[in-house]
Amino acid sequence: MPDVALRKTLVYIEEVFHEGGPPAATPLLRGGVCAVIANPFAGRYVQDIAGFMEDLEPLGRGMAARLLAALGGDPALIEGYGKGAIIGEAGELEHGALWHVPGGYAMREALGDAKAIVPSTKKVGGPGARLDVPIMHINASYVRSHFDSLEIGIADAPRAGELLLALVMTTGPRIHARVGGLQAADIAEHDGLR
């Protein structure tokens, strides 16, 4: 499988104090890391692509570490996560699916084997395309206060023959979460769901 050719990275961190309601005692951090790489399968149909997932593992681990560091460096403070990909126009949606395993497992590993599935989204798009990356609680998908999303994107990416790969993390619930449902404090099943 081909090498991973990295063109650029972007780290985006939001520190949210309030959204019209009472300011939080600890501001909420929401962050994303994006990497723009060459799509080795752009422009033609390639049947065997799965081996590229292993090539992406070091990139995934590096991105997870970088995002964690930008959010303060303590894995214990990360409560939500998600991942996504934008495939440049000479690629296929299936190329974005290559990110599920190396992106997801890198992040779960960095957070001490988080239990919940890493929610994800992907699409084919041009430079400047925006992606709403879904976010859920890292240990129990049904925790309602942590359903969130972060919009990411880069003005000049992805070009036609590129992939934009993203990981996102948050340090807590939505800033004024108040619609009930399962609370993080009530996680009991430890099955990744509840």
Binding site: V11, E14, F17, E19
Partner: peptide
């Protein structure tokens, strides 16, 4: 309301 930082490399 919030502060955002972005780093591009």
């Amino acid at each position: 309301r919030k502060i955002v930082t972005i780093v591009e490399e």
